[in-house]
């Protein structure tokens, strides 16, 4: 069933509706916008060549949850991006795809993906419109063939009119499948966590430990996990490994280097948002840390040196961030305030 996020606190505004067009303008589609709180910048970014329409977003949502988009009819986007886990799958390396074979990277959250500058852990996808073809066709993900998808959808009495309404010029095409998915994913906004309430309206809702946690976080973590997106949208080597010699699988183990071909990017991965981080275990691009405790221990005691290690994690001979066990647990208290129940219950 389609539903337009009924619990959504931000109003879904039907805007002015109609683009001014000449006589040849076929796409007269009501566009809408979603209000975004000021601490997230006040507006929702979108792609100029794929602007939101209500029909586009609803079609994208339907596709996102539809297992028939996989070759065996059992895998949807939501299989690895489950709403209740803030659109992750709880696995270090997902084996939920058609082949059952584990992937090489951890399934990332889709919370606030509209703001992401690069997608995938290495920023390989420049926009959501270009990203979907990977998961739809990869043998270890949905393993489908774009031509057969388009054939099926063109002949499907339910989908075919939905595509024509949402994308009159494109109709059913691989481009419109991807555009619909992109529109829907950009509406996945998490902005009502306890932290958001604290920062926007009520400073009294934080406990003493949460406040100390926030203070420590601001001091030690926020240079990369910048508030209030909780990411700097950049790429860093956070000291997980000391060597990056494995060039196999099209250099998937070399971080951002495989995209930029710049040796200074070897071992660098995208700073993930920490929104809903308590729900998105395990952690890191390969899911190597099962708990937040193990992540904090890594930063305190486990950082490995290498040529591209972030300078923030190195002070002379001293590696990592100096954090006592008590400070680590206070930071974790704070991280739990980033959980947004409303966000995960919307779908």
């Amino acid at each position: 069933m389609l539903k337009i996020h009924k619990n959504y606190i931000f109003s879904l505004l039907l805007i002015l509706g109609f683009t001014i067009g000449g006589c040849n303008e076929k796409e007269i589609i009501p566009q809408y916008t979603i209000e975004v709180p000021d601490n997230l910048g006040g507006y929702l970014p979108q792609n100029g060549r794929n602007k939101f329409t209500e029909k586009g977003v609803l079609l994208g949502e339907k596709i996102f949850f539809d297992q028939r988009f996989s070759s065996n009819g059992k895998v949807s986007c939501a299989t690895c991006h489950e709403p209740e886990r803030a659109f992750t799958d709880g696995l270090a390396l997902s084996n939920l795809g058609v082949s059952g074979k584990a992937l090489n990277r951890n399934s990332p959250t889709l919370a606030n993906v509209a703001w992401a500058v690069g997608l995938f852990w290495d920023g390989g996808a420049l926009n959501l419109e270009s990203l979907s073809f990977g998961p739809l066709t990869h043998v270890d993900e949905m393993n489908n063939d774009l031509d057969s998808l388009v054939d099926w959808l063109s002949n499907d009495p339910e989908y075919s009119p939905l595509f024509l309404e949402a994308f009159p010029a494109l109709g059913v095409s691989s481009a419109s499948i991807s555009r619909a998915l992109a529109q829907f994913q950009r509406t996945l906004i998490s902005a009502n966590s306890k932290y958001d309430q604290y920062t926007r309206t009520d400073e009294n809702i934080f406990s003493a430990a949460e406040k100390r946690g926030l203070q420590l976080f601001t001091q030690h973590c926020s240079s990369c996990h910048e508030t209030d997106h909780l990411t700097d949208f950049d790429y860093h080597n956070n000291g997980l490994d000391s060597e990056f010699n494995d060039t196999s699988l099209e250099e998937v183990f070399m971080g951002r280097y495989r995209i930029s071909r710049d040796e200074r990017d070897i071992g660098k991965y995208k700073t993930p948002t920490l929104r809903n981080i308590a729900l998105t275990a395990p952690y890191m691009h390969d899911g190597r840390f099962p708990t937040l405790e193990s992540v904090l221990i890594h930063y305190a005691k486990g950082v490995q040196d290498s040529e591209t290690l972030s300078p923030i994690l190195k002070d002379g001979e001293q590696l990592g961030i100096k954090l006592s066990p008590k400070e680590q647990s206070e930071i974790i208290e704070f991280l739990h305030t980033l959980t947004d129940e409303e966000f995960i219950n919307n779908y």
Partner: peptide, 22 residues
């Protein structure tokens, strides 16, 4: 070359688009 949501000869179904890079 910045975006893959194209049609015709640039449709990704032609299997000329990278799926992990743009």
């Amino acid at each position: 070359n910045l975006s893959l949501d194209n049609t015709g000869d640039l449709d990704p179904s032609n299997e000329m688009a990278w799926n992990w890079d743009t």
